[in-house]
């Protein structure tokens, strides 16, 4: 099996160029390109984090999701003149260090034997599932953020339709989505 670290330099350059072109189009408003970008990025992140979290395999998928959310929320900080790899790597590393710091703090507080309860829960098929359910976290958001996200992002309604349905203004719907995704990232970051 060919693994990520066996990719040649040319392969890496090619995927940098490809992802970069996708992100540039996404930033200009191309949602389809953005979908492909995030999907491929997810796979890269999974390989990257799996290698670095060899001892914490259960955390990998959660962190993949957390990092994707971070990339989405911070995509306005990407400068097209900058290598995409450097930008992505800095974000992934930041989230990884943040997770390890959070865990270190929690492990100090908790009896480490507690983890024994989860021993049978973990299996191969579940390893690829996130333990933290973003959908549940979404439910904890206030209505003015949750409803725009549910209608626009999950049900695929337009901003105008959502505004009509919820009685919110169109700009309130947009602000609700934007703030809601930031709040989601913050809730993940606070270790809930």
């Amino acid at each position: 099996m060919r693994r990520d670290d066996e990719l040649t330099k040319d392969d890496v350059n090619a995927s940098e160029e490809r992802l970069r072109a996708l992100l540039v189009r996404a930033i200009a408003g191309d949602a389809a390109a953005y979908h492909v970008f995030l999907r491929d990025l997810g796979a890269h992140l999974r390989a990257f984090l799996r290698k670095r979290l060899a001892r914490l395999p259960d955390e990998v998928e959660d962190l993949v999701q957390e990092t994707l959310l971070a990339v989405h929320n911070q995509r306005h900080t990407y400068d097209e003149s900058q290598p995409l790899t450097a930008w992505l790597h800095a974000i992934a590393r930041y989230k990884l260090v943040d997770l390890l710091r959070r865990r270190a703090r929690r492990d100090l507080l908790n009896d480490p034997l507690d983890d024994g309860n989860e021993l049978l829960v973990a299996s191969d098929t579940e390893a690829a599932d996130a333990r933290r359910d973003v959908a549940k976290l979404l439910d904890t958001l206030p209505d003015r953020q949750r409803r725009p996200i549910v209608h626009v992002k999950l049900e695929g309604l337009s901003v105008a339709e959502t505004a009509k349905l919820t009685g919110m203004s169109e700009s309130a719907v947009k602000v609700g989505i934007h703030r809601g995704l930031k709040a989601l990232a913050a809730r993940i970051g606070s270790g809930s």
């Binding site: 996404a26 930033i27 200009a28 408003g29 949602a31 389809a32 953005y34 979908h35 995030l38 999907r39 997810g42 998928e61 993949v64 999701q65 994707l68 959310l69 989405h72 995509r75 306005h76 599932d129 996130a130 359910d133 973003v134 959908a135 979404l138 996200i149 626009v152 992002k153 999950l154 695929g156 337009s158 901003v159 947009k174 989505i177 995704l181």
Partner: peptide, 22 residues
């Protein structure tokens, strides 16, 4: 939520980034 679903959620309806905002 599966990662694929999260990807769809983030991508759907994600408009252009306003270059003037910064």
């Amino acid at each position: 939520m599966k990662t694929d679903d999260l990807v769809s959620l983030l991508a759907s309806g994600a408009g252009a980034v306003d270059p003037g905002a910064a």
